[in-house]
Design a protein around this nucleic acid. Structure first.
Lengths: 393, 393
DNA sequence: CCACTTTGGCAACGCTGTTGCGAAACCGCA
DNA sequence: TGCGGTTTCGCAACAGCGTTGCCAAAGTGG
């Protein structure tokens, strides 16, 4: 954060990441150079040069031609998903999920196994390493180009240093440098984040939100937490403490919470759930969401979590009722894989210019750190095969 | 936001703004080129080129020599504050304050006059235009280089379009395009924002917070609002609705608020104030602040506002007590001029690369739109006088 | 008085996106 | 079938960015 000075290399990487991100958003159908130029504000020539570099690096490829609109038909460009991969790890109290995704975020292999998060660091690290190895093997043997691993687990923790704090229910993890330990074990760069943040990232990935929007993901499971995305980037705060939604005080003289305060929304809400009073739980959740929405001017509220999904309709209706329709409320697509996909996305996001400009972790300028060779050598001619399709003369 | 593509001109402006911002932070003592290079991450040569451009544009100048540290002493560079100016306007319910500041944010002239915000658009616009003219005259006649005017007033309003909404207590302003109307009247670019956001910006200006930090300014006056700065940039939300701190529900079955809900912190707090129960008001404020801090992981809480300043010590102690020392709590420096300075800062911030990347307003790439001529003409030699000091042959 | 250090400018350089121009490919109309 | 119009996209030349290599200037310390 102290060196935001931009040189030509930074400019090149920025634009390359931008174009790469647009190609990813375009999906398998791809996007034409002119379209990319329009979206980025760059000159078509600049886009041509950038895409030529991407093609030379194997990150992009041609994807057929589009229908003409009166002139030469555009040749679509698409992301080459297999050019690189990322690993996502989701640590839960009693389960471990590991996935391997390609550049597009699509799943290549996933494994879930039981885990005792309280079994100690060595056992957990061993389990993660073993599962990662199995997933890599499953996905196809010598899969080169694994950029790194993203790990999602319950907080609190410090995202920048990768050090855990008093992980809820497992105080023995306090102070453990998970990122560095796992990076050493895997031989890969590792990023660590809270599960709610990974879930939010996973929801962006699923297209539930338009990029550069703001939304809150509220997770009601064994606890109550939130993942915040403000302006397209996950908001973590300086100490990765943001998102402590559950300990928002809603009733000044309410029952005491384990955090020491009285009337936290988590206690109130879980009490209502325990009583079977779903309507009241939904109302409480709605009040908390309304407080959040008013404070941050959120575009969308997404609901998820095991408890909530038992009666998702009722919760959504209750929250929507309190909010009065101001920001839309939706239930996050269920999918067990949202969090683990989001964890992998922690690694991929920096490739597409969506790292949120806080690359203090181990993943720095990934662009040049592997995928795209620095200039200096004359581009070895991308050998664009002229697509020997049906030619008509 | 749709065109984040960066070309060479954007890169030049970015770095120039960055260096200019560092020069401003350095104050009248200035900073050496080497220091700038270290802070920006740029090469010393790049900094030399950039500062040469800035000097040619009249925005920077040499400021003497520093003590040597074993070699050639560094020549300090400083901002030339008079190179440009900005106007800040603060509209209150019953008063109008207009200030003219230079590039460093220092006051050149300020006037305060009574105002009836409910007197209608025409009267208010007329008053603002008259006061702006008087302030410009006071500051020294033909002051060229006024970049624009920033206007701070109670919300809600839309910062992007510059259109007011139901300004609290004055519904007749609903839908009035203040920015465009005033821009036409003044012949200057205008930016509009909520007074709490301007206050937050003014507090940054006063050095109460380090840049790139996160803090919340809580204002307890006739109402209760907040200005949020997250990661060094004011967080407004898509609709400039962020900061609605006062209508956070703290007591589910509390008294009804004018916003329609029950138990808003504003009602509870103002009731306590009316009862003379400062301790309770402070506690309520503290609980609300704690909710905010936990949700956003804020670094600092600053307190201000007319009501609060009547017993600032008690409020600060009360809030600090609830927060438990986690983030520091301080009373914002009183100063009537904080908001109006912040309003002027709305204009200046974009010059220093701190616009928060949402330049949707009227102020776009101010850099080239006036202060620095585009390249293409050979620089007319900055005529750096070799400072005919004592030379020792 | 002579190393040594540090600052900062000059010139050449590589790389960036941009501009000018033209080839390719398709549509529509005659 | 032929031709102009339109759109896409690449090649070549270009201006301008920060970088590198080199050197002068101006101090300190032995």
């Amino acid at each position: 954060m102290l060196s935001p000075g931009a040189n030509l290399a930074a400019l090149r990487d920025h634009n390359a990441a931008l174009v790469l991100g647009l190609l990813r958003d375009a999906g398998p159908e791809g996007a034409s150079r002119a379209e990319l130029a329009g979206r980025t504000g760059l000159t078509p020539q600049a886009v041509s040069k950038i895409t030529a570099r991407l093609r030379a690096a194997g990150l992009a490829a041609e994807a057929g031609r589009r229908a003409s609109t009166g002139g030469k038909p555009a040749t679509a460009l698409r992301l080459v998903p297999d050019a690189a991969h990322a690993i996502g790890v989701h640590l839960e109290r009693d389960a471990l999920t590991v996935t391997l995704v390609d550049l597009s975020g699509a799943e290549a292999a996933t494994r879930t196994s039981p885990l005792d998060l309280g079994a100690g660091a060595e056992a957990v690290l061993e389990a993660v390493a073993a599962e990662v190895a199995r997933v890599r093997a499953e996905a196809g043997g010598s899969l080169l180009g694994v950029l790194g691993a993203g790990v999602a687990l319950p907080g609190p923790l410090d995202h920048r240093s990768g050090v855990l704090q008093r992980v809820t229910g497992f105080p023995q993890w306090d102070g453990f440098p998970l990122r560095d330990a796992l990076a050493g074990r895997l031989g890969l760069p590792v990023v660590v984040d809270k599960d709610t943040n990974a879930a939010a990232l996973g929801l962006v990935l699923r297209g539930c939100v338009e990029p550069s929007g703001s939304f809150a993901y509220l997770h009601l499971g064994t606890g109550l937490g939130a993942g915040l995305v403000l302006g397209g980037a996950v908001h973590r705060g300086a100490r990765t403490g943001a998102g402590e939604f559950g300990h928002q005080v809603l009733r000044l003289d309410g029952p005491r919470c384990r955090c020491g305060n009285r009337g936290c929304i988590e206690v109130l809400c879980l009490d209502a759930v325990a009583r079977g009073d779903t309507a009241e739980a939904a109302r409480l959740l709605g009040v908390g969401a309304a407080n959040l929405v008013r404070l941050l001017d959120i575009d969308l509220v997404l609901l998820g979590g095991g408890v909530l999904l038992n009666a998702s309709g009722a919760y959504a209706a209750g929250v929507r009722d309190v909010l009065g329709g101001a920001p839309p409320v939706a239930v996050a697509p269920a999918g067990e894989r949202t969090v683990v996909e989001g964890a992998a996305e922690l690694v991929l996001a920096s490739l597409f210019g969506r790292g949120g400009r806080e690359r203090d972790g181990a993943l720095q300028p990934l662009e040049k750190a592997g995928l795209m060779s620095a200039p200096g050598l004359t581009a070895p001619s991308p050998s664009s095969s002229p697509s020997p399709g049906t030619s008509r003369p």
